[in-house]
Every structure is written in C-alpha cells, then in structure tokens.
Design a protein around this nucleic acid. Sequence first.
DNA 1: CCGCGGGCCTGAGAGC
DNA 2: TGCTCTCAGGCCCGCG
Length: 301
Amino acid sequence: MPELPEVETVRRGLQPVMEGAKIVVAEARRPDLRFPFQPDFVDRLQGQIVTGLGRRAKYLMADLASGDVLLMHLGMSGSFRVIKPDDEAVSGEFHYPRGKDSAHDHVLFRMSSGADIVFNDPRRFGYMKVIARNALDDEPLLRDLGPEPLGNEFDAAMLARACAGKTTSLKAALLDQRVVAGLGNIYVCEALHRSHLSPRRIAATLSTKAGQRKSVAGGEPTDHAKRLVSAIHTVLNDAIEAGGSSLRDHRQTSGELGYFQHSFKVYDREGETCKTPRCGGTIKRFTQNGRSTFWCPKCQK
DNA sequence: CCGCGGGCCTGAGAGC
DNA sequence: TGCTCTCAGGCCCGCG
C-alpha cells in the first residue's frame, strides 16, 4: 500500500503521541512479520523515551533515548492506529476496541502520552527492526536507498545521472529505490502522466548522453528530466496534503481515509478519458515488470 | 553488473 | 451461498 505520501501521513499522525513519550509497554503478538522479530526486540523498546519520529523513503524511524532506532516498514498492507485506552485499561494490558481484523494486530505500544498504538498488517510484508543509531550507515535495509524525492539533493541533474546508461524502462527505473527512494506504483504512474512521459521510454533518455554508462559521463539532464522532477514534487506534495491515497488498506492514524485517490489522473482509471486538457485520449493499462501500469498513450510520449 | 520474474502473505471482488 | 481465479500500494533473491 503505502508509498511516501502514505508513510509521511502516518508519521504525522504518530508524532504527537510518540515524540517525547515513553514506550511503557511493547508487545509483539506473533513471532514474525516479514522476518522474525529480534529476540531482544521488546526489551530494547520498553521503557525507552522516543526522542524523535522521522521518515526515510518508506521507512518510519523512531529515535530512542538509548541510542537505538526503531525502523518500521508498512509493506503492502500495514497501518497504524492511535487509540485512547478505555477506562477499563489495566496497566500492562491492552484493552483497546478490537475490530474485525484484529487478528492482524501484530504490534502494540502503550505510550506514556496516554495513547495505545496498534500496528495491523494482514499480508505481513511489513517489518520492524531495532538498530543502533551509530550503525545506521551500515544497515542493509537503508544503505542502498537513493535520494529523498522531496529533498534538496534530488533534482533533474541527479535523476538524469542515476538513469544514465539504464536500458530499462523509465517506469522500472523510478520504482527502483536506489534511483529515488519513496515512489511506488501509484505515484510513478501519476508523475509520468503529469510530465507527459511514456512509462515505456528508456530510462537513459533523461540524459543527453543517453547511451553512455554513468561511470563514463552522465550527460546533461534533458527537459524531460526537469519536467519529471517537477511532476514528482507536485504529486507527492499534493498527496501528502490530502492524507495519502486510500484504495484498500491505507488509513490515517485517526482511522480517517486519505483522499488523494480522487485526484488520480491515470491510476485505476483504465478505460476512462484522459484528463489532460485537449487530449481526449483513453487511459490504458498493461503490465510492466509484473505490475500494472496505467497511462495515456496519446499524451505521454 | 543489470534487468527480469518468482515468491512471500491474506483478502476483496468478479465470474460461474 | 460458495468455489476458483485474479489482483493488490513492496521488496528480496536468484537466474540468465
């Protein structure tokens, strides 16, 4: 489910109840998510003050007073809910209201701020891991991530350089978290449409020396690269503003839906008329690298 | 090294 | 109602 805007929405929902608060109780209700929990997972969390809650790509990162960092990834179907415990809540136990899919409530935090935080993930592609902050640079999960798409380093020149020499499609390149970190299937489709670029375009055509290996020379960014970067900025910022996109699983931590799905121009709109002014084309769908691509063949070149 | 396809999980929805 | 099939917002791994 969650791409950068959804993860950022979750971060903003958790920040007020986590930052500055202590994790009074932590509970892992099954032995594994995508990976087994570390044997000392709970011990390294309980009693710790969360000094900050950040985000890197699609990861949430909670800084702990101990010097550890709690890494959290939502996979495809992960979500967090913030719940005020009811009056019957007994210290050390969780009595939050159970919903229909509470069988998939896998991780619980009781915070000193007076909130319970519940991590639910039916498909269990998500995971959590505690690592030492001074080992962040060596963490395999983070080591190879490319630039933040909303960060200062990410611009047309950098994108062109990262795509130089790539013979794969532009769609596949943008989904590669080493090129730029945080985009997923929805926002790649949307950014390509908004910049009028075909998902089938060869990635290397974003730079003037399209045939060069990046180790030789990156070339200059083309106007296409500039348009694309601009579209990525716009679509991500607008989606964050809207609380993300809710198709199936994504909820804000309050339980509210995001509403950026109403602003999709291509994703999940197969057969509908293209919204580009004066285009009039029909949105098509096909499979690229095993994933659905939605696009308008008439205005995306 | 690079690009691609399979696999990991469960649930929702379509079609019969 | 219920079965089977397809598909889903991510990402790791192994193959050629």
